[in-house]
Amino acid sequence: MSRSGIIQFVLFFVYLLVQVLVLRNLVLFNTAFCFLYIAFILLLPIETNTLVLMLAGFLLGFSVDVFYDSMGLHALATVLIAYLRNYWLSTITPQGGYESGAAATLAANGLQWFLVYSLPMVFLHHLVLFFVEAAGFTMFWYTMLKIVASLLFTMSVIALLQFLTPQRRRI
């Protein structure tokens, strides 16, 4: 296994433990959840194979499900964004393309690009997650409130963590 492979392997467990030990207890105003673990899928290197992404997404989502007692729910939402990630990445390729071996991070591509990339992905994840959990549209507006509040919370944490990690910037 390559060096970056080992780092990703460790990161998988770091994201999982942070999610189930810390963020599971951290819900703001009873509506804003932080599902930071999807950052693991979003931030994997741009050239990562879709099959690998989906498998990682499934394992991560499934592990989170075990702790949330919501069998299949997080796995479903995470596999969806893992599948769509690469299509979305190729759609929003900046002029001149990505540098080879670049990560899908804020440091490598700038804040504006990162927001365009991650906002719809996180929104889609939360949309699927909360509506499947609610099992329908009977509580539509309350569920939408949860989605938007969680989107802001999760995105803030993902973006802030990006600024904290020491990497070469291009803003």
Partner: peptide
């Protein structure tokens, strides 16, 4: 693969909604 995984997840979600079960993958 995407289709297979999503169907698996959907099955798990639906299966889990049924009340009372003894299964391994929960807390």
């Amino acid at each position: 693969t995407f289709l297979f995984l999503e169907l698996l997840c959907a099955w798990l979600v639906i299966e889990n909604n049924q009340y009372q079960s003894t299964r391994y993958f929960n807390s």
